[in-house]
Amino acid sequence: MEASITLKKVGKLFGDKTILANLTFGIEKGTLVALVGDNDAGKSTLLKVLAGLENPNYGSVFLHGLDTNKRRLETRQTVAFVPHDIDFDPWLTLEQNIIFDALLYESHKEKIESRIHEYGHALDMGDFMYTMAGNVPHGIQKKAMIVRALAHDPTILIMDEPTAFMDAPSRRLVWDLIRKLKGSKTIVYSSQFLPEVEAANDRIMVIHDGRVLLDGSLDKLLESTLEYHQFAIEFEELTDELFATLSGVPTVVNPMKIGNTLNFYGRSRKVFFEVLNASTGALMKDLSIQKLSLQDLLDSAFAQKGMNE
């Protein structure tokens, strides 16, 4: 399949700190790719590098085979970026902001207005389009930023937290639109709303310390953790001594004490019986065992301990 975005040994430094470390990967045309990871993992910087807002210190980014550094104006025509923060001119209406931006890419105002109408309708913008941006709630402005990004018909859409500031109905509308666009546009986004990422379920890249820690579909990522379960055992009284004893059980991964509840990961259900033996008769009140989710994968301690085992 044709690559829409290709990174070759891309690195970004801020002073001595490495933000992106030697990234090499490709993104196929028409795919929906999520970047997830802790704060400060490098997701936003990676998106800015892809969008052309930041230049990498080394390496190259190619959009549709064109080097973004050497063919700057051509590559910019194909890409649109939705930053995390609101960046509209507060003294213009949302529609005026969008038309102005789109006219920088395309001269046909009728086409632009038709797209604004189409995507504005899809995101239920209503009369907010004709309201001064400074008087519009942030969630609505964020939706308008998505309309702005689409108004010049880019082939690559880069979004930093596309549903930030939005209420639940707006988030649903945005996801409906993203699913509709998938296939015709290459979409790369970052998100902290992991249930949304799990639901979209195309390709997920887990970024950690400027590196791609995990990369693949949700099923593929969780495949390596299929044996793992998340345990939560509530004791009548979980003393520090008991917690230390149970933490020492070799098969218990990443134990945590929350009140009288012991949370940990285990490779199989039999870990429970090993904990039971080690608890030497301490009274248990409740027990829950769950399969792992994307959130567990992002737990850096687990990702480092569990995945490497």
């Binding site: 051509e74 910019r76 930053p83 960046d87």
Partner: peptide, 11 residues
């Protein structure tokens, strides 16, 4: 961080 960001990203 308003307006100039989309402006400088344009071709």
């Amino acid at each position: 961080h308003k307006v100039l960001i989309p402006m400088v990203l344009s071709p």
